[in-house]
Amino acid sequence: MPWIVLSLSGVLEAVWATALGKSAGFTKLVPTLVFGAGIIASMAGLAFALREIPIGTGYAVWVGIGATLTVVYAMVTGTESLSILKIVLLLGLIGCVIGLKLVSDAGH
């Protein structure tokens, strides 16, 4: 259960990070509200998951999921340029996140 909550919290990190970018410095109401709700839910889920997952591994997985999804969303929507190198680097990040999860499970 903690890994599922952590994964969902990582998705919410991408939501609040994207909303933050769209809020124009908190001058646009809807993105600001999405940011606020997203960050609260994401942090609550992270805090819950970290009761059973080591902090280093949990935080790295949370950030990795959020960062990857934020970049992918930006590339899909055209906000950020798409390149083979970025895709390779994101795949490396995903591989590292999976590796941390596997290593963490092996330690228990």
Rank of each mutant, 00 (worst) to 15 (best):
D105A: 15
D105L: 15
S83P: 05
V103D: 14
A44P: 08
A24T: 10
V71D: 02
K22C: 08
A17V: 13
A49R: 04
G58Y: 04
K22S: 14
L93H: 02
K101Y: 11
I40S: 12
S9L: 01
D105N: 11
M75D: 09
V61F: 03
A106T: 07
G64K: 02
W62E: 02
A60N: 02
V30S: 08
L90H: 02
G10A: 00
A47Q: 15
G107W: 09
T68R: 05
T79M: 14
G64H: 00
T70F: 00
G56I: 11
H108Q: 15
L91K: 07
T68K: 02
I53G: 01
I94V: 15
T32N: 03
K86A: 06
T32K: 05
G95A: 13
I98W: 06
V72E: 08
V5C: 04
V34K: 03
T70K: 00
A49N: 03
I40P: 10
G64Q: 02
V97L: 07
I55H: 07
M1P: 07
Y59F: 15
L20A: 07
L82C: 13
G10D: 01
L69G: 08
G92R: 04
S23N: 02
G25Y: 06
R51G: 15
L102H: 10
V61N: 01
L8W: 03
D105S: 13
L90G: 07
V76I: 15
I84Q: 13
A24Q: 14
T68P: 09
T77E: 12
A14K: 00
V61A: 11
K86V: 05
G56A: 12
L50V: 08
E52Y: 05
F26E: 09
R51Y: 09
T77M: 08
L29Q: 10
T57N: 11
T70V: 06
K22I: 09
A19H: 03
A14L: 00
T77V: 14
K28L: 15
T57M: 12
M43A: 15
G78V: 05
S9K: 03
K28F: 11
G78I: 07
Y73N: 12
W62K: 02
S104W: 09
G36Y: 08
Y59E: 08
G92W: 07
V5W: 04
L50T: 05
V15H: 00
S83N: 09
V88D: 09
K22V: 11
K101E: 12
G107M: 14
A24N: 15
I94K: 09
D105R: 13
G10F: 00
L100G: 08
S83R: 06
P2R: 01
T32R: 03
P54W: 07
S81C: 05
I53Q: 01
E80D: 14
I87M: 14
G92D: 06
A14F: 01
E80L: 12
I87C: 07
T18F: 07
E52D: 13
G58D: 03
W62F: 14
L69M: 08
G66P: 00
L82P: 05
L33Y: 03
G45W: 01
K101P: 09
K86D: 06
V72C: 06
L33D: 04
I39V: 15
A41F: 11
A74M: 06
A60L: 04
L20H: 01
L85Y: 13
F26A: 09
A44W: 13
T18D: 05
W3M: 06
V11W: 03
